[in-house]
Design a protein around this nucleic acid. Sequence first.
DNA 1: CTCATTATTTAAACTAGTTTAAGAATATTG
DNA 2: CAATATTCTTAAACTAGTTTAAATAATGAG
Lengths: 196, 196
Amino acid sequence: MYHELLKAYFNKIVRFTPNESDAIVRYYQEKRVAKGEFILRKNEVFRLEGYVVEGCFKVSIIDEKGNEKVLYFAARDWWVMDIDSFANQTASSLNIQAIEDSTLLVISRDNKERLYNEVPKVERLFRIMYQRAVAAWQKRLIRNQTMNAEERYQHFITIYPEITKQVTNKLIASYLGITQEFLSMIRRRRSKKSTK
Amino acid sequence: MYHELLKAYFNKIVRFTPNESDAIVRYYQEKRVAKGEFILRKNEVFRLEGYVVEGCFKVSIIDEKGNEKVLYFAARDWWVMDIDSFANQTASSLNIQAIEDSTLLVISRDNKERLYNEVPKVERLFRIMYQRAVAAWQKRLIRNQTMNAEERYQHFITIYPEITKQVTNKLIASYLGITQEFLSMIRRRRSKKSTK
DNA sequence: CTCATTATTTAAACTAGTTTAAGAATATTG
DNA sequence: CAATATTCTTAAACTAGTTTAAATAATGAG
């Protein structure tokens, strides 16, 4: 039944006929993931690309000092993947873990290649999706270089109000590239300001 | 004559027939840009996507304090574009300026759409190119969050030895997200180390 | 419900990187 | 070639964000 969500998602980007839509979503299977479960661990090869229909994931790396850095969150209507590992079937440097009980629609790498061949317009679909993704990552980098931590936090809670509720401050701090202690200070500063 | 370079570039990603290759590169026109010239200024709509065959460009933004931040450099065999502005024909927030006398192969947004339709495999080509670009931007962000300024500088001069020669330290500092003064200090520290 | 774990806050000492200012070295232009 | 502009360097004072440590609050497992 979640397939309708995925059809709607895709049809907003490229207009498919009902037949094409059906053929596409047939490749995607429902997968439930319990809170805390990993769908990818560092050094594994990422085998499934997933559209999140329920719940929330964190995509992170562990640096050489053992610190976890959150690369991004994927809540409802987002995708989880290690685009590099999935495309090239190389060992991943990322962890992907459910931070709530979650449900995905997943496709394997082999099936994705089959899908590109069966419905060539899917190339266009993902061309546009990736094109937008490049623009989004560029903007994120620009924000990191032009905004200070407080401004980045403000931006985060404004554009991701739902995720703000779903994840801990520790993880938000990691996403923003600061320590949880400093985020705590920012939050105090902000709450003082707002009561004045 | 530069068209052969572009054919080679594309054929490394997707195998095209000679006819297809010819059809594709016919859409790309040679454009010379003198040092210092802008091919895009903030608030304009980006109309040309370009493959650099000669020279070097800087792609940057001016933040609200008036500081220029270099997003990336594009030397030979790279692409210059504002992917967001080009795709959606919205006002750009970027400047793109030649930092040497340069030569590009350019395509207009309208011709690019025609190209996608004339040679559908080009969708696949750019799907793969953008997919790789997403992976590259993610890695850049991870480097920014896990490496300090000196490590980032070391990484930069290692993977971009040519660009290191082509651009000023001021611009490298901007790319790395630090001030030129601090980069200068890093360079002194490094040169002391290496003479010990 | 209780114990244990994890997240959050606070604060003081610290450090990586910035700011400001000025002089020296390079490049650019007429 | 001289004049001018720009880049690069140095250094001191500063600040945004980190580290360490400890206390408190919230959450989760049994």
